[in-house]
């Protein structure tokens, strides 16, 4: 019946507008996949450095409550984390912009801003908290699980304004982080799983769900 398809089309238009006006839907799964590989590379570099330069393994390093502030060590840590973060964000922006263009959407609008603000408030809190733990208390081992927990909370908070998968990614990161708090010695391994493997898995799921299939025709 012709009238029926007309009504169905109206409903799908309403749904599409509601989604586009309230959620940041341009987030690309591929940005997750590449961020995951960056994290794995970053964690691998850290692991190699620890084993070669420090002389004792990560488990022992993390287990020490107070780590002597060795300039070389921290320079390496911040350079490693900085480069990893920079590459992950760069890939994220690249693939998300590409997806927005392909969908004919604007990359920068009210939904993107809302998503980022809600992501960065808990994320920045976590970042500052970790710096305090490190420089004020010198507790190195707790940092990797802490970054996982705060990253998970940030994703959970921002997930209201983007694709649903982000919520589950957030919850998974929180669980990994809590496990990491109990097994401090596995901090870097769990960090690599959380920021590396989980990003790749969820990125692939999102890519397959939203991008690999051809988009339906747009009405507007």
């Amino acid at each position: 019946m012709n009238q029926k398809s007309e009504h169905l089309q109206q409903i799908s238009e309403i749904k599409s507008i509601m989604e586009r006006s309230s959620c940041f839907i341009s987030l690309s799964g591929l940005s997750g996949v590449f961020a995951g590989f960056c994290a794995l590379a970053g964690a691998a570099a850290f692991y190699v450095y620890i084993n070669q330069k420090i002389g004792y393994g990560y488990t022992e390093l993390a287990g020490r409550f107070r780590v002597e502030l060795d300039v070389d060590f921290f320079t390496f840590c911040f350079a490693d984390a900085g480069i990893t973060l920079f590459l992950a964000i760069a890939f994220g922006i690249f693939f998300t912009t590409r997806k927005a263009k392909a969908d004919g959407l604007k990359i920068w609008d009210a939904t993107a801003l809302r998503f980022l603000i809600n992501l960065f408030i808990p994320l920045a809190t976590g970042g500052i908290f970790c710096l305090i733990l490190l420089f004020h208390f010198g507790w190195f081992g707790i940092i990797p699980p802490c970054t996982l927990i705060f990253y998970g909370l940030s994703l959970l908070n921002a997930s209201k304004y983007t694709l649903d998968e982000i919520r589950w990614l957030g919850i998974s990161e929180i669980v990994l982080g809590l496990i990491g708090c109990l097994y401090i010695g596995y901090g870097v391994t769990l960090w690599a799983i959380g920021f590396g493997v989980l990003h790749i898995i969820y990125g692939l799921i999102m890519y397959i769900r939203y991008e690999a299939v051809p988009k339906e025709k747009k009405y507007w």
Binding site: I17, S21, A110
Partner: peptide
């Protein structure tokens, strides 16, 4: 549709959204 899921939307956003 846009106003149902957002507390408020400004003119320019509506214009971009609906093209």
């Amino acid at each position: 549709s846009a106003l149902m899921v957002n507390a408020s939307v400004d003119f320019l956003s509506l214009k971009d959204l609906l093209n």
